[in-house]
Design a protein around this nucleic acid. Sequence first.
DNA 1: GCCTTAAAACCGACTAGTTGGTATGTTTTC
DNA 2: GAAAACATACCAACTAGTCGGTTTTAAGGC
Lengths: 205, 205
Amino acid sequence: MSRDAIDTAKKESVRTRLLEAALTSIRRKGYSATTVDELCAIAGVTKGGFFHHFKSKEALGVAAADYWSQMTSGLFVNAPYHEPDDPLERVLAYIDFRSALIEGPIAEFTCLVGTMVQEAYDSSDAIRAACEASICGHAATLEADIEAAMDKYGRTEGVSAASLALHTQAVLQGGFILAKARGGPEIAKESAAHLKRYITLLFKH
Amino acid sequence: MSRDAIDTAKKESVRTRLLEAALTSIRRKGYSATTVDELCAIAGVTKGGFFHHFKSKEALGVAAADYWSQMTSGLFVNAPYHEPDDPLERVLAYIDFRSALIEGPIAEFTCLVGTMVQEAYDSSDAIRAACEASICGHAATLEADIEAAMDKYGRTEGVSAASLALHTQAVLQGGFILAKARGGPEIAKESAAHLKRYITLLFKH
DNA sequence: GCCTTAAAACCGACTAGTTGGTATGTTTTC
DNA sequence: GAAAACATACCAACTAGTCGGTTTTAAGGC
């Protein structure tokens, strides 16, 4: 471990603990209901420590969205759904991968930024923008595969790769809402299955 | 106007004003960030008035979800999308109708219960259940038409009318989230278009 | 390796305002 | 004349954020 890496690790440890606490709490209760005091208690830091790392609660919200982007992008980059040679297969494998993640307690598979942007889109443009970047940035990682699938299987009028990529995110986010309303993950998985069927029909038809 | 109707109108007037205020505020800032004081100010009532009608903020949340169900069901029952003779046409017309509603300021076309359940699903089971009833109740109004379309155009294995009806709600809810993140309604409309294309492909294929 | 030094990391008590909720009225309605 | 519909004043707990102080860390001179 290099000098720098150790520095970073130590420097980040409290900050990271606060961010991890934020992810847990915001996913469970939302942004507004999550209090600074609570995060401090979970992370084992005092108020002074919190406001040393984040100049405001809003800044924590933005940082949490960025941290979330980082964590999830790491997860998806290393995921096995990139393996198939066929681009359409890769897109469908992505949906299967997302579907497989929808398991267990609701707060553990739902999306931080989707939850946060619902409350903050009007009150904090900084948080809104961070959530937009997270969602759209992730959607963008799908575009190349969708584009390649269009090259191979043909295009449908009015359907762009970007629009379809964002639609996948809409379906997943909507599935999370229904799962929260229902109190279980099944309905979200079913919506993912509909999405997979849509994409299959779109290309194989 | 009957004696009863006048009574109801007067009796409901303050309560309704509070509920209307709740709809506006919750759709804009979420449930947690909406304060009782604020609702009182908007509705022109004092705290005493509020807690006379609602025994707690949570009770207001439940009442707001119920009020929302009432209002929206009124809107949809009288909507023109029921006119077509063909059941599939009716389903597609429903989506067009929903898409046409997605206009103007975000807080004015997004869904109250979808917003509220994101924050409250874990903290308040009463609110969660009210939101579930609202979403699923509305989805159920689509089932008959979907079922009839299946009778007419054939079924796809693994696709039930109930599941497809809920999927439409998931797509719409997800579209709202993306619209909030993006700061405009267009993306939600595009997702609705994908949904329409999916249903068309599903039945016409 | 040791001492100095300064900055960064963190603590903990404090504040001013806000929160949902209550207790005790007064007015209105039937 | 009593019950329902409000108003008023109040409270204890909690809210984000501040501020002066202490500890920890990293770098440099010797």
